[in-house]
């Protein structure tokens, strides 16, 4: 069953086509990877799905609803959360606050109730706190909850970003290079962790990743972008043996 689908989305910046007719299908519970050389348009594809950019052409369909052109916050409310390639935590705020903020989108109390601390707000605040602490527990950051988020080491910042994205209660989670900058041990842990959260939170995961060990280890299917064009898709085995993919990564020997 398809959870998220894109129909030939294209993104043009002036004369440059960053992504051309990208068609994706994510089925419930899958882990799908998007790979390709630097500058292939992977993050642009993410940005179109999450509403940061509006595709020049094509549609993004989430749970049979056309979400093309919605704002990023609306898309997150519907259930698509993401992390960022170059980590975008709320740097000056505490680890806990970072996760609490991601709960705000489901709040029912209005700001007056919040200022006056009326019972409904108190209940919601308590629930947010408990949920956030659970998530921090899950990513192993519970004891660092009062630290400033920018003071965490790199790997932990990545985990915090994932916890924060999970706090928005997503159905689909988009991870932009989750293993970037991690050491081999952290990378191994991450592979296990991604599977765990997929199962525990009933997620469908779509990730951009360069680390082939991670990609080949956990992906059900892989899409390959090169210069904005989808040059291949298939199972890890198919991709590993695809001539065009090998050429895109290693270059072709012509008369160059």
């Amino acid at each position: 069953m398809s959870v998220l689908r894109t129909d030939s989305i294209t993104m043009q910046f002036g004369g440059l086509t960053a992504v051309k007719e990208f068609s994706l299908e994510l089925n419930k519970g899958e882990i799908i990877a998007l790979i390709g050389p630097n500058g292939a348009g992977k993050t642009t594809a993410f940005n179109m799905i999450t509403g940061v950019y509006k595709p020049t052409k094509g549609n993004v369909i989430f749970n049979d609803k056309n979400i093309t052109g919605l704002k990023p916050d609306q898309i997150t409310v519907l259930g698509v959360a993401r992390t960022f390639q170059n980590i975008r935590l709320f740097k000056d705020l505490s680890v806990l606050d970072n996760v609490l903020i991601a709960n705000h989108l489901r709040i029912k109390s209005n700001f007056m109730e919040a200022i006056l601390k009326l019972p409904r707000y108190r209940r919601e605040e308590k629930a947010m706190f408990e949920k956030s602490m659970n998530l921090l527990e899950k990513v192993g950051l519970a004891d660092l909850k009062d630290e400033k988020s920018s003071s965490l080491p790199y790997g932990k910042q990545r985990r915090l970003e994932i916890a924060r994205a999970l706090a928005t209660d997503p159905a689909v989670l988009l991870l932009d290079e989750p293993a970037a900058g991690m050491n081999p041990k952290e990378t191994d842990d991450l592979t296990v962790f991604i599977k765990e959260i997929r199962d525990e939170f009933n997620l469908t995961i779509f990730m951009i990743e360069h680390h082939m060990q991670v990609v080949m280890g956990i992906s059900n299917r892989i899409y390959v972008l090169d210069y904005g064009v989808t040059i291949a898709q298939g199972t890890p085995y198919e991709i590993q043996n695809n001539q065009r993919v090998i050429e895109a990564y290693l270059g072709v020997e012509e008369n160059a």
Partner: peptide
Amino acid sequence: VMISLINSSYGRAFKAIREDEIAAESMGIN
């Protein structure tokens, strides 16, 4: 009022906007 507001969920949302608008928007904050 300010102390209460700033430490509430709304106050945290305000601070999130100050820290990083793009991330705040991606966390579902209008």
